[in-house]
Design a binder for these strands. Sequence first.
RNA 1: GUGGUUGUAGCUCAGUUGGUUAGAGCACCAGAUUGUGGUUCUGGGGGUCGCCGGUUCGAGCCCGGUUAGCCACCCCA
Length: 457
Amino acid sequence: MSKPSLPQGTRDFGPVVVRKRNYILQTIRTVFELYGYEPLETPAMENMETLLGKYGDEGDKLIFKILNNGLSDAKNIEKGKAAFENVLLGKNDKNLTERALRYDLTIPFARYVAMNYGQLALPFKRYQIQPVWRADRPQKGRYREFYQCDADVVGSKSLINEVELCIIYATVFEQLGIDVTIKINNRKVLAALADVTEANDKFTAITVAIDKLDKIGIDKVKEELAANGLQDKQIAVIEKYISITGNVSEKLQALQILIGQSESGKAGIEALQYVTDSYLQYTGKQNLELDTTLARGLNYYTGCILEIKANGVQMGSIGGGGRYDDLTGLFGVPNVPGVGISFGVDRIYDVLEELNAFPAFTNSSTQVLFFNLGLQESSAAFTQMQLLRKSGISCELYHENAKFDKQFKYAEKKQIGHIVIIGTKELEQNVANVKNLTSGKQQTVPFSELATYFSNL
RNA sequence: GUGGUUGUAGCUCAGUUGGUUAGAGCACCAGAUUGUGGUUCUGGGGGUCGCCGGUUCGAGCCCGGUUAGCCACCCCA
């Protein structure tokens, strides 16, 4: 038998890692609930037609497809062979695969809203924390199976939602102890830029290029724009745009001059003005930054777009989101606008690890280990242990009568803070010897006071 | 999908121009030590050198293929 292994790009999460991840997820979940968002879960797999065509050509290639069952049945063999020929041509065929693993949480959410539109109390605010799958090649911070952690509100055009989502970001990262900058921009501003540049047909190319500014620098951006067929005159306008600097109001003023005459530009500037003003008014924080070069790849965004940068850490964005006008239109229910945000759990984990910012309690769940010193002794220990457990103190009894050395090492390895020794001497007097493994101090505690002793630690 | 790089004990890694029986540290097990761990000492178990093939009298080392990890590009979280 060959060595067991994992599929490419997937991971096991051991006890220590799960505990730390749960801490992150629980923090996010609690804040979502605090702001009135409701939980939703959707299946790991969706029908192929639900997913295809929603993420662009690149996206379609990265969808994990599920092979149909029963292909070897006599009646299916011919259909299967024909379907396979289709697949070899790069097409999809229902006779070979009609289901696929979900690629993100937003499209399944849109599908859910479209299916339940009549029953939902609008606006519908939901959060969803589940894994998604992509047939991408793994690299740093990038996996084939990873968790997304989304909050969206659909059925409302109000910019109050944008403001609240920014505050949710700020609250979560404050609770996690990560100093962040929330970057905001608006796709309408970008559309206006394409408009005044007279390059509406090159909108995607422009956004993709300027999004890379901080990564590759202005010269490479200009090269990329030229490679995409933009004239020098047009590139000059774009250069003017990405050179905008200053604080929020200075940037907005500069935008006003550059693209304020365009309908779309005006709307985008107004939205940015409102969201940044309100955010400052409600939080008093200065960490919401207008970043005119923020573009974000996903093409369904139509309004404000957001991205989170952790300060003082070398790491890509740890969250992002934005407004989309008509996602459910893809499923036959038009005119349901929405806006949402997403947390990058894996990267947040890496940031906390790098900052050494996980709280101590994430290290171990067991607080107390009862030593096993024989049949009589361990029986008494078990009785005391159950009393502690009733008081909410997590504890365990060493599984067999082993040497002290072994029992100590077990406690040490599991980072259990205290051990309890009940031997024949202690048994006679109804007391236990309690040792704090961190300080090395030991004291004798009567059985009747054990629970109070540990509760008061 | 394209390219680079790595794969030797549970973990981190040595291994000379190809040459007897592949090593170290940590971890593990046993003893010194039958009710007080973390230190120390002694001994021990553990390997298809990722996998398949080729060159050679002889391959951990050279060549080809393959697979997995890591990294970069495309794209994205």
